[in-house]
Structures are given as C-alpha cells and as structure tokens.
C-alpha cells in the first residue's frame, strides 16, 4: 500500500473490471485442460494407425524386427508420424500423471519429488526418442545383411 492511502480505508477502484478471482496464477490449468482434449483427439488417430500397421496388418507382432523399423523410418512420413505421436503422447501422459500426483500426493515434499522424477523422465524419453528417430541409420555398416531391410543391399 502506498504512503498516500495509509490511514484511510482502502477503497477499490470503482472503475476496475469485476474479477471473480482475487489472485491469479494465470490460465495454465485451463490451457492444459484444452491440450488434453485436443491432443487426445489427435492421439486416437495416431495410435490406432500405429497399432493397426504394427500389430494387425501383415504378420503383426511377429513381423517386428530391425528390418521392419528401418523400413518404416526410411520414410519421412513415418518419421513425422512417430515424432508427433511421441511428443503429443509424452506431454499428454506427463500432464495426466502430474494431475494424479497433485490429487493423491498430499505431502509437499513427496509431491515435489514425484513431479521432479516425472519431468526428468519426460525430458530423457522425449530427447532420446527424438534423437533416435532422426539419427537412425537403417543400413548400419558391418551389420549382417539378413537383419537389414532389403533396400540396403541395392
């Protein structure tokens, strides 16, 4: 309170717009709420497509090996698909677990530790996944040809 108003009862500025909240920490929780719904709708399409191509089409889980992954990531379409899926799923999942930690971990210290571990896991997994998608070599030198996708030998 400034020196001029000291001694007199503080009167709110009658011209100030009405605010429901006396204090505000911004709209962070509103934005995460919107993000969960927007990213969720996109993730349904991305993950159902991912599951269909990897588990249902062709020989399903049996066909998954290095050659299968290399064949997909030689294509920028699947690189982009998996990159968007990685980031959206990790932010969506991290925010979901953050909400659950906030709900059930009532002790301040425990809540802080759990959230720090959560954010550390987020950074490690997203960084690692992104690097792997973009630095991956489908035809590593010296690897047995029968483990590699067919286009490596041509």
């Amino acid at each position: 309170m400034s020196a001029q108003t000291q001694g007199a009862a503080a009167i709110a500025d009658p011209g100030a717009p009405y605010r429901r909240r006396r204090t505000t920490r911004g709209n962070f929780e509103l934005y995460t709420w919107v993000f969960m719904r927007a990213s969720g709708a996109i993730l349904v399409l991305l993950i159902f497509g991912h599951l269909f191509v990897n588990l249902v089409a062709g020989e399903g889980i049996k066909a998954i090996d290095f050659g299968f992954v290399a064949g997909k990531w030689a294509n920028p379409f699947w690189q982009g698909w998996d990159l968007v899926m990685l980031w959206l799923a990790m932010i969506h999942g991290t925010n979901g677990v953050r909400t659950i930690v906030n709900d059930y971990a009532e002790r301040d210290g425990l809540r802080l530790v759990l959230k720090l571990a959560l954010y550390a896991a987020f950074i490690v997994v997203v960084t690692l996944g992104t690097l792997v998608i973009f630095t991956f070599d489908p035809c590593p030198a010296g690897a047995p040809a029968d483990l590699l996708p067919s286009f490596c030998s041509t």
Binding site: V69, G93, G96, L131, V132, F136
Partner: peptide, 24 residues
C-alpha cells in the same frame, strides 16, 4: 488405464531406441 499406458510408453521408447545400438 492412463497410468498403465504412460508407463508402457516410457518402456516402449527405451526398447525402440535400441535400434540405434545394433540390429542384433
């Protein structure tokens, strides 16, 4: 189900990252 999927996702990114090590 959300928590189950999240923990699988962490493991799944780690196992897929092994393509960076070697095909074997």
């Amino acid at each position: 189900t959300g928590v189950m999927i999240f923990f699988f996702l962490l493991v799944h990114v780690l196992d897929t990252s092994l393509v960076r090590l070697s095909p074997e």
